[in-house]
Design a binder for these strands. Structure first.
Lengths: 215, 215
DNA sequence: ACGCTTATTGGTCAAAGCACCAATAAGCTG
DNA sequence: CAGCTTATTGGTGCTTTGACCAATAAGCGT
């Protein structure tokens, strides 16, 4: 990476340094996995001694949990933007079309990573649960909005949200091994959503067709 | 664990020792995770030097892969027995009722574990793919048998199998974090199966009701 | 211009892991 | 019973990791 003439010290604002560390950690997490976030690895990315990273995150696990949380939250904001004025059907279609796209493979892998690692790291586990709640709530709110607008029909918005999320998780479970599922299988996310929300078949699929999302 | 008077040596048949090692590894894998399979850990379980375990498995990754493969294969044989003469509907119902039951939480966790670890361990990755194929093929065969018998109706048995497996994976994705999904969500496995196979609603659910499986 | 806070360095320590190897003895085979 | 194969031991070397600490210097506030 970048290097400085030895003997000099770059002293940065704590907030800035902390952000740098989290950025580097996010990069490592997305490309190599959460277990590759080590004091040394992050240190060499920033051209800084490992001890400095430890200074900002006395416990590595906190850095790991924070990194995952930030990445998951960022992905959620991209997939289901908070203050959108689009109709719920369009937003849901956009979400379903993107969530399994190659663009999000890295972060879906990250979820898999975090869910497993949560077994050993309590702090990370709490963060995984928290992010899971965020996703469920955001999607539930979207479904409720659609129901209010008369676009969707369902008695249990939260149950539907959980079902959709579970299908997405299931379809990306094999991302590290054998990613190539037949298109007919991947369509299940849209199928479940349309059925649960009593949408006529194709309503969401049309939005998911290539090119339909740029409109 | 068990200990021997020091100075004596217990020399076992290679096949027996190997089986012991795999048994111990399976126990560790199911209760603590695949990354806890170490030469030392297995060695102390068998009251044997770590080097001996290394003698049977010169590369730890081979032991890990073999352990996972054996456990997954065993679970498959339990969930979808090979030479059964039961009607396909009953077998499928049995499978769906059991796969997500608490009894199989450990091994479902193991799948999650293996799918993540496959990212770093090529040998394990091959094994995960292999086991995934086994599951898909076994379930596909069951569905084809049901179609031949006129119990199921589908044009794409393999697609249906993959969908069912994906739903099961999705519903057990959070096993390490927040295991308690509403029953209405867990029912999705049965719902998808009944819909995809054009079964009247409740056909599989009845089998899944408590007590129905002991028949 | 001085002083104080603290960001940053550099180095140490213990733990845990895998791989490797030479020596030993168990127990089968001739 | 002798000899040979090899299961088993015990020990070594190396790597990676997280945590910890004292010393140093950057740069802000007074």
């Amino acid at each position: 990476m970048s290097s400085r003439p030895p003997g000099t010290r770059l002293r940065k604002q704590p907030a800035e340094r902390r952000a740098e560390i989290l950025d580097a950690a996010a990069q490592v997490a997305l490309t190599e996995g959460l277990e590759c976030i080590t004091l040394r690895r992050i240190g060499e990315m920033l051209d800084v001694r490992p001890g400095l990273v430890g200074h900002y995150f006395p416990a590595v696990e906190d850095l790991v949990a924070e990194t995952f949380g930030a990445a998951a939250e960022a992905e959620l904001s991209t997939l289901i933007p908070a203050g959108s004025d689009e109709p719920p059907t369009a937003r849901l279609a956009r979400f379903l079309a993107s969530a399994l796209s190659e663009q999000f493979h890295d972060v879906n892998r990250l979820w898999l990573n975090a869910r497993h690692l949560a077994r050993y790291r309590p702090t990370l586990r709490r963060r995984v649960i928290l992010q899971g709640d965020h996703w469920r709530d955001r999607l539930t709110a979207l479904i409720e909005a659609g129901a209010r607008a008369g676009e969707f029909r369902t008695a249990q918005p939260e149950v539907v949200a959980l079902k959709i999320l579970a299908v997405i998780d299931g379809l990306s479970a094999d991302l590290n091994a054998d990613p190539k599922l037949p298109a007919a299988v991947l369509e299940m996310a849209v199928e479940v959503a349309e059925r649960e929300l009593e949408l006529s078949p194709g309503t969401l699929a049309d939005w998911a067709a290539p090119g339909a999302l740029e409109a």
